[in-house]
């Protein structure tokens, strides 16, 4: 089992580096959407406070 071979194509059809890149987009998206959600919540809380 040659897990260190960067050119090995895994059953997903991706090599390790390709899979890492796809994953990086996922992580990136989560961060951006997370920050946006946080900001949106802050702004809503300022307009109509729900925490007393």
């Amino acid at each position: 089992m040659s897990t260190n071979d960067p050119d090995k194509v895994w059953p997903t059809g991706l090599t390790l580096r390709e899979a890492e890149e796809v994953h990086s987009y996922l992580i990136d998206g989560t961060r951006v959407f997370g920050v946006i959600a946080l900001l949106a919540h802050v702004l809503v809380a300022v307009t109509t406070p729900w925490l007393g």
Binding site: V35, I36, A37, A40, L43, V46, T47
Partner: peptide
């Protein structure tokens, strides 16, 4: 993201 926060930003 811009559209998601825009309405609340405008209201504030």
């Amino acid at each position: 993201g811009g559209f998601a926060i825009m309405p609340f930003a405008l209201l504030v």
